[in-house]
Amino acid sequence: MTNECKKGRNLKNSKSDMVNLTKNVDQKDDLKYNRRAFLKTAAGASIALGLSTVPFSVRAMMGMAEEENERVEIGRLDQLGEGESMTFNYPTDNDPAILVHTVNGDLVAYNSACTHLMCPVFYKKEEDILLCPCHKGYFDVNNGQPVEGPPQRELPLIEIEVENGIVYATGRKYRHG
């Protein structure tokens, strides 16, 4: 091979011996699928995979710059008996959430979109558990962790405070427990 055809060394009219093997009936395939092409594809795949994470880090840096969640009133505690639940939205109107007064007397709140396919979860008083009826996903009401069914991640925990009989949402944790 000479330097004259350096740029076209993998083309059909190349002067490379590799390309112009005599009686090569599979010349087209040999040009496309060979050791060199394989490594080039592998390197390209590695670079593409590496760069595909950049948008996530850009969004993450934008997310880090966002303001802390504000304190929002959910409702009055005396209107929520033990074994009952109520829905609200936190931190935005597009984030449905559920406040549960468990049969043990604890107050817990989670975003109620199931971490499987975003169906709303409900509190099942008889079993003291959170249920997603779409695909029978169950979450532990005490910590929001999935205990049965397809969900793999816990429900986002909403931090609450009770002051003068009024329940407030003060923050949200995605990873907890």
Partner: peptide, 29 residues
């Protein structure tokens, strides 16, 4: 790193997203 980045992003663990993404970009280079 792609797997860990996406997991961390969904978990809103932004510091970890940046770390994993940085490792991934260095690896790509």
């Amino acid at each position: 790193m792609v797997q860990w980045t996406v997991e961390s992003y969904l978990g809103q663990e932004f510091n970890q997203v940046v770390i994993y993404s940085g490792i991934s970009v260095v690896s790509a280079f």
